[in-house]
C-alpha cells in the first residue's frame, strides 16, 4: 500500500473511531464506517491538512469511499 493510502487509512481510523480492518478501499464513509455528513466534512478537512492539498467542495462531495480519497489525493500529489 502506498504511503498516501496508509496515511488516509490512519486518519479515517482516528476520526471515525473504527477498527483498521474495516477501512478497506471500497468502504463507504457513511454506509460502512458509520460517518454522518458532518464527519465527512471533518474528514476532508483532515485530509487537506495532512496532505497539504485543497479539496474544493464539489470534489469533496464525490469523495465517498476510502479509495475515492486516496485516488483524489494521489492525483493532486502527482500534478
Amino acid at each position: 500500500m502506498s504511503e498516501i493510502a496508509d496515511k488516509v487509512k490512519k486518519i479515517v481510523v482516528e476520526h471515525l473511531g473504527v477498527e483498521e480492518s474495516k477501512v478497506t478501499p471500497e468502504a463507504s464513509f457513511i454506509d460502512d464506517l458509520g460517518a454522518d455528513s458532518l464527519d465527512t466534512v471533518e474528514l476532508v478537512m483532515a485530509f487537506e491538512e495532512a496532505f497539504n492539498v485543497e479539496i474544493p467542495e464539489d470534489a469533496a462531495e464525490k469523495i465517498t469511499t476510502v479509495k475515492d480519497a486516496i485516488d483524489y489525493i494521489e492525483k493532486q500529489k502527482v500534478a
Partner: peptide, 10 residues
C-alpha cells in the same frame, strides 16, 4: 477559517 471543525457550533 476553512479549517474550522464542522462540530464547532453543535
Amino acid at each position: 477559517a476553512r479549517r474550522l471543525s464542522p462540530f464547532f457550533i453543535p
